[in-house]
Design a protein around this nucleic acid. Structure first.
Length: 691
DNA sequence: GTTAGGG
DNA sequence: CCCTAAC
């Protein structure tokens, strides 16, 4: 090993401008759904300066970008895990249960290594599937602070694992919040279990899966859990034969990206979705939505058969993924090495108080005990890589490893009733933090007061090296979508100033799922004599939107908790904001277009056949209750277009073709209900005449 | 808060 | 999808 030079950079903190409050009509706001665009825009407004503590650490490990091609790590990773398992366990089993979930920060998932993921996937307890009660809910949770894996040791030391749980309760905000500060825990038992099962029942072995994974093939386990690699970055996990649940992990090709789940589509941003989703929150929307936005969970109680949505998910969930794989040169996907590295090891402290530290401190240091504190940013400048990949063979390179210890959230006002549960408090805090972070952020690099915009330049060219002075390098979080006018950047981030005047603080109210039960009841009791299927076709929440945690609906106390976020800049730090973009004419961004899938159309048709064309709310509740991005207005509009589509010639139709059979049903149902409406009118008028 | 319909 | 009148 080479020398270990370590340079620590100071983290100055992180400031967020006031989050503009949505000004849209309350009506639209009331619909439980996400306003990603809104958040996106909000994200544009975010300008967070982050000074990073960067540890420059020399080592001569392999280039991290080569790792993904190195299957050899598969085995060693496993070994590492095994060792690791003995170290971990400060966390109460009650909390983590068999799921072995943990998360240190908001950065949900960076897929470190595919084999890594797979290993964890395989940890699902086999017997879980035998328990219908607990449900085979596949909970995919990820931890932050992922990093490229240069070596097995690194994994061990960083303890960032993906963990699977067999309980849906684990996922979501609860997990994200409550377990922010805990270190990862591996479930030895589960793991072993899974391994055995894998071999016993013909499922792929860990290594096989890893290998396949590495080769970007579609991997389908013959047994549960199965792992499907939907795309380069999205791994689909599905457990149990019922396919009641599934989840996705974004997988970066290089295994470096923040893997955050997005419930919502509307990320107009070209930023890798994984990142966007990570920080998404729903400003004007109900917490239910926003909460679920960071939930890597799948609701086992999901009605209907989500199966047929899988394809859609694969296609839509991470649309950019395709782009990425196809056009890696696109700025969107093209994460410059340095940026990627910046994400590495990143973690965000949820509580400004920094309880993380303690928790982190209690975590095992791993095999690389001599390393810096696990949460310190570290950069390693290595000598020429001994075994760099072919693509790098032509030139020497040094690796600069960055590890961001934490992002400090300056101020956070939370308003929550005393009767609220701790869990709800955690969720509320989560919401607030998520709101602050927003989504669509990317990291800007400021070196010696100058913002480095040339993403293509190497660190060496830029001047980032282990020779940097401690304060030379800092990071800022900034909107990444519409390239903000960067010209406003002052020479130093300390001069950054918020362009927008403080606005009313957005208020986040935790009010998810409150009415739905009763409403659902009501809707369920209603039935019509309309011909058609009687089975409720429940459209599962779309691929990227995870249903709210089951406990959320029960925790009524959450309903009135409010969070005030985006504190107006009051201190010097807060004023170091710079205008990032021109205020859009409206603060509400248009939602991105989300074409209905055939499955959704099917569900819609079925519901309308049953309920009619005048009860869109019921249709929504019936068939799209979990598709948070579909409002009843959407459904109504879709029906409108469906009717239109059905009436025009197939040649005139555009978009994904809707099966003629469905269109026929549309016309039929439409005619039927139109007739019904007329009859009703007639009856009414007659009755009135009689009176 | 929903519905209906134009944009 | 958005917007809004009307209920």
């Amino acid at each position: 090993m080479a020398l270990h030079k370590r340079i620590y950079y100071g983290f100055n903190g992180y400031q967020v401008p006031p989050t503009p409050r949505a000004t849209r009509s309350p009506r639209t706001r009331s619909i439980p759904r996400k306003r990603t665009d809104e958040n996106q825009m909000r994200a544009f407004d975010l300008l967070a300066t982050v000074a990073g503590n960067i540890l420059l650490e020399g080592n001569n490990s392999n280039s991290s970008s080569d790792v993904s091609n190195n299957n050899e790590h598969s085995a060693s990773l496993e070994d590492s895990f095994e060792k690791e398992e003995h170290n971990i366990d400060k966390i109460s089993n009650a909390e983590l249960s068999s799921s072995g979930v943990c998360s240190k920060s908001f950065f949900v998932s960076e897929l470190v290594n595919r084999s890594h993921i797979l290993n964890n996937c395989l940890k699902e307890r086999p017997h879980a599937q035998g328990d219908p009660g607990s449900g085979p809910a596949s909970v995919i949770t990820t931890s932050d602070c992922s990093m490229k894996i240069d070596s097995p040791e690194q994994i061990v030391s960083d303890r960032n694992k993906f963990l699977l749980g067999n309980s849906t309760r684990i996922a979501g905000s609860e997990l994200s919040v409550s377990k922010v500060s805990v270190s990862c825990k591996l479930d030895c038992e589960s793991k072993t279990h899974m391994k055995n099962e894998s071999s016993d029942k013909g499922a792929m072995t860990v290594r096989n899966m890893a290998n396949k994974f590495n080769s970007n093939c579609l991997v389908t386990g013959t047994r549960n859990p199965s792992v499907l690699l939907a795309s380069d970055r999205s791994v689909k996990f599905s457990f149990n034969k019922d396919h009641k649940s599934s989840g996705f992990l974004p997988v970066d090709r290089e295994g470096v990206k923040l893997g955050i789940r997005d419930d919502d589509e509307n990320s107009g941003c070209i930023q890798p979705r994984t990142v966007n989703k990570a920080f998404r929150s729903c400003n004007g929307d109900r917490i239910r939505d926003s909460v679920s936005s960071h939930c890597w969970k799948v609701n086992p109680a999901m009605k209907g058969d989500p199966n047929h949505f899988d394809a859609d998910r694969d296609r839509n969930h991470f649309p950019q993924d395709k782009n990425n794989s196809c056009k890696p040169q696109l700025p969107v996907t093209d994460y410059p090495i340095k940026k990627r590295k910046l994400y590495d090891y990143s973690s965000i402290s949820k509580y400004s108080g920094g309880t993380n530290e303690d928790d982190c401190g209690s975590t095992p240091k791993g095999s690389t005990g001599n390393g810096p504190t696990s949460f310190m940013t570290s950069t390693g400048v290595t000598g020429p890589s001994n075994s760099s990949g072919v693509e790098h063979a032509s030139r020497q390179r040094r690796d600069v490893k960055l590890k961001i210890k934490s992002f400090r959230v300056p101020e956070l006002f939370i308003e929550i009733p005393e009767t609220a549960t701790v869990g709800s408090l955690k969720r509320t805090v989560m919401e607030a933090v998520m709101a602050i972070l927003g989504d669509g952020l990317h990291v800007g690099v400021v070196l010696q007061g100058k913002k480095i915009k040339e993403d293509s330049r190497t660190l060496l060219q830029t001047g980032i090296s282990h020779n940097n002075k401690p304060d030379a390098l800092s990071f800022i979080l900034e909107p990444n979508c519409p390239p903000a006018p960067i010209s406003v950047y002052a020479k130093s981030p300390t001069f950054l100033r918020s362009r927008e005047s403080p606005k009313p603080l957005p208020r986040y109210t935790d009010a998810q799922n409150l009415v739905h039960d009763s409403v659902r009841h009501k809707a369920a009791t209603k039935s019509s004599d309309v011909p058609g299927s009687n089975s409720t076709n429940f459209v599962e929440s779309d691929h990227d939107s995870a249903p709210s945690p089951p406990d959320m609906s029960q925790d009524k106390s959450v309903a009135d908790s409010k969070v005030l976020v985006a504190v107006p800049p009051t201190n010097a730090e807060a004023q170091n904001m710079v205008p990032m973009r021109k205020p859009k004419r409206s603060e509400s961004a248009r939602r991105i277009r989300r074409p209905f899938t055939v499955s959704e159309v099917e569900a819609l048709v079925q519901a309308v056949e049953k309920l009619g064309t005048g009860r869109w709310r019921d249709v929504k509740l019936r068939a799209f209750d979990n598709a948070k991005h579909r409002t009843y207005v959407d459904l109504k509009d879709k029906w409108k277009t469906l009717v239109h589509t059905a009436r025009i010639s197939p040649q005139q139709r555009r978009g994904e073709p809707v099966p003629q059979e469905l269109l026929d049903r549309v016309l039929l149902a439409h005619a039927y209900w139109s007739q019904q409406a007329k009859q009703q009118l007639k009856l009414h008028s007659e009755a009135r005449l009689l009176l």
